[in-house]
């Protein structure tokens, strides 16, 4: 069902915050080190041009995974995403080159893309919001680190808003159900009555969050101290 998809996405994002409070089971590396490791592995995945190089990046990712032991990774979800992404890329490659020769290149590109995002997922699963803010405070202005952490926190809320708008508009007759969207001439409806109100809601949400932060004296001093818990 259409709503189920939103609910699953919302649940996935919401779970991100629940994992904040699971005890770390892997090696307790400093957040800065983990962040740097994730960034390096992602960059290496993009730079890999040969199978051997990609194999080495894969081995490095496996090692990091075993060391950090992230909790709550859904192999089923990750597997499905990979299969979907691979299918799309391989089909596009076959169409582009007109033969099965595109299959190997398509598979490599897909694996490369997967490895580019995997380290970020491992980092997010093994690091709490408070720790990320603390680490970011050292390398960027506290306002910016607050904005980044808040964006992560409110992503599920914004998705709920989008879901409400979507469901309300479906019953108002908007042609935006998955079957409707198979026809490209219905796409303007999606932009017009879901994306536009969602952007307006997103801006209103940003305004409300900013006000909530100012109510608690955010911005009174140029630097902030940090809660030592979590």
């Amino acid at each position: 069902m259409a709503g189920d998809r939103f609910s699953r996405l919302h649940t996935t994002l919401a779970r991100g915050s629940h994992h904040d409070n699971r005890p770390d089971k892997g090696i307790p590396l400093p957040v800065g080190v983990k962040m740097l490791l994730a960034l390096t592995l992602s960059c290496l995945a993009f730079l890999a041009r040969t199978e051997t190089f990609l194999g080495m990046v894969t081995a490095a990712n496996l090692l990091v995974f075993v060391l950090l032991r992230p909790q709550g990774v859904s192999w089923w979800r990750q597997g499905r995403l990979f299969v979907f992404q691979t299918t799309v890329i391989v089909v596009l490659y076959i169409l582009r080159f007109g033969s099965l020769a595109g299959v190997r290149d398509g598979l490599l590109i897909s694996w490369q893309l997967f490895l580019a995002f995997w380290p970020t997922m491992v980092f997010a699963k093994t690091t709490s919001q408070a720790k990320i803010v603390r680490a970011m405070n050292r390398i960027m202005p506290s306002r910016m680190s607050f904005v980044m952490a808040t964006c992560l926190k409110f992503a599920p809320h914004l998705l709920e808003e989008v879901r409400d708008i979507y469901e309300g508009q479906v019953l108002r007759g908007a042609r935006i159900l998955p079957k409707d969207l198979a026809r490209p001439w219905n796409w303007p409806d999606l932009v017009h009555c879901v994306v536009v109100p969602a952007v307006v809601q997103g801006m209103a949400l940003a305004g409300n969050i900013a006000m909530a932060a100012r109510v608690r004296d955010f911005g009174l001093h140029s630097r902030r101290t940090c809660w030592p818990g979590d």
């Binding site: 915050s17 408070a130 926190k153 909530a212 911005g219 101290t225 809660w227 979590d230």
Partner: peptide
Amino acid sequence: ETQLLATSVGAEVAFGLENLCV
């Protein structure tokens, strides 16, 4: 919902103290 800015109870209450540089 739009005023709770942290993910844990302790961090939420401490947000104001962080801003006051306690």
